[in-house]
Simulated scan of single mutants.
Amino acid sequence: MLRLEMRPQPSAAWSYASPLLAIALTVLIGMALFAALGKDPVAGLRVFFWEPVRNARAWSELLLKATPLLLIGLGLAIGFRSNVWNIGAEGQFVIGAVCASGTALALQGVGFAVWPLVLLAGVAGGLAWASLTALLRDRFNANEILVSL
C-alpha cells in the first residue's frame, strides 16, 4: 500500500523548478487553447509576452494598468498585516476614483490647486465605501470577507 510521507526538508531543486514548470505548463496549455480555437499560438504568445514591453509607449501602457493593481495590493497588504480581511479593495478603488473624478469635474478650470482636493476626495470615497463593511462588522457581527465581497 502506498503512503504519503512528509520530507524532513523541502527539496531545493523543486523550489526553483516548480515555478518554471508552472510557467511552461501555462504556456503549453495556452498554445493548445489558441490552436484549438484556430488562432496562431505564436501570435498569441507574442501579444501576451512581447507586445507589453516592445517600446516606450507599451511600457507606459503597462505601467498605467499596473499602478492601480499595485495600489490595491499595497492597501491589502497593510490590512492583512493588521489581521483585517478585505476582499472589496477593487470596489473601494473604483468608488474613490469616481469621487476623485467628480471632484475634478466639479472644480474644472480652477487649476493645479485642485489636486489636493481631488486626492482627498478619492481617499474619502474609498474610506466611505470601506466603512460600510466596518460598520456591518462592528454593529451586526457580519463576516467582513462576505460583506466586502
Rank of each mutant, 00 (worst) to 15 (best):
P116G: 08
V98H: 02
R54G: 03
M31Q: 13
Q92S: 09
M31C: 14
V114D: 03
L64N: 14
A36R: 13
V84A: 01
A77S: 15
R54P: 02
M31A: 13
S101L: 11
G44M: 14
A124F: 00
R137I: 08
G73S: 11
L149T: 12
L37K: 14
S148K: 01
S60Q: 15
P52N: 11
S15F: 09
P68Q: 02
G73N: 05
M6H: 06
A121M: 01
A36S: 15
L25W: 07
A97N: 03
A22E: 07
Q9L: 05
F93G: 06
T26P: 02
L105F: 06
Y16P: 07
F140S: 10
A104V: 01
S60F: 10
I72V: 14
K39G: 00
A43F: 06
P10S: 08
G96N: 00
A128T: 06
V118A: 08
L25A: 15
F140Y: 13
L28T: 13
S60P: 02
G91Y: 02
G96R: 03
V110A: 13
A106S: 03
G109Y: 06
A121Y: 05
G88V: 05
I72F: 13
N143C: 01
R7N: 07
A121C: 04
F140Q: 03
S131K: 10
F49V: 12
A104S: 06
L63F: 15
L107V: 08
I23P: 11
